[in-house]
């Protein structure tokens, strides 16, 4: 199940198999790490060919994303079953207008929470998480030390995690 060009990636996969399996097992795959790695490779092998700068990082990142996908799929499956038994209302049951309203409300709360941390923290978080700029690049962009960037991000992350708990328990 190889596409042309995935040969190098596959060689890396074989070379890093032990590390990848250990990561997947710890990351929630447990005893099924071998199966999960197999599924992950199927997914990678059929994806359109792209130049990969760092095959090792690419594979670990793909493994991380794959575990996130599995978690998301499991949560929505459980939610559907829950709703099927009439135990709760799903977002699909809510009128579209209501969902748009909730999304807008949450956006405003996130914006306000970030703004309250100051314009620099706000900017650093957006560069990092929306624009996908790494901490080292943000540090040189803004003439800040790496540890200051990390501290700003920690503030934003802590605040947003607390906000999420607050919004989801209200």
């Amino acid at each position: 199940m190889e596409t042309p060009g995935s040969g190098a990636l596959h060689a890396t996969l074989l070379a890093e198999r032990g590390r990848l399996l250990r990561f997947l097992a710890a990351r929630g795959a447990g005893d099924e790490a071998e199966d999960v790695l197999h599924d992950l490779w199927q997914k990678i092998a059929v994806a359109p060919e792209r130049p990969v700068a760092d095959p090792v990082s690419y594979l670990f990142r793909a493994a991380e994303n794959h575990m996130r996908d599995l978690r998301r799929a499991r949560i929505s499956r459980e939610k559907r079953q829950h709703d099927w038994h009439g135990l709760g209302s799903s977002p699909e049951d809510e009128p579209v207008g209501e969902r748009v309203f909730i999304a807008r409300e949450q956006l405003q709360q996130v914006q306000a929470a970030l703004a309250a941390l100051g314009s620099r923290v706000d900017h650093v978080f957006r560069r990092y998480r929306l624009d996908g700029v790494g901490q080292a690049d943000i540090a040189s962009e803004l003439g800040m030390s790496l540890s200051s960037v990390e501290k700003d991000l920690q503030k934003a992350y802590r605040t947003l995690a607390e906000l999420r708990i607050k919004l989801h328990t209200e």
Binding site: R19, F23, S57, V133, G134, R158, A161
Partner: peptide
């Protein structure tokens, strides 16, 4: 653990994150 976990989630979001073995060990 949430403080440490948040730090890991934050670091993993960096496109140049490469301490996957460190994350593995912490999870273990």
């Amino acid at each position: 653990f949430s403080e440490a976990a948040r730090l890991w989630a934050m670091r993993v979001a960096d496109p140049s994150f490469d301490d996957w073995d460190g994350l593995t060990r912490w999870l273990e």
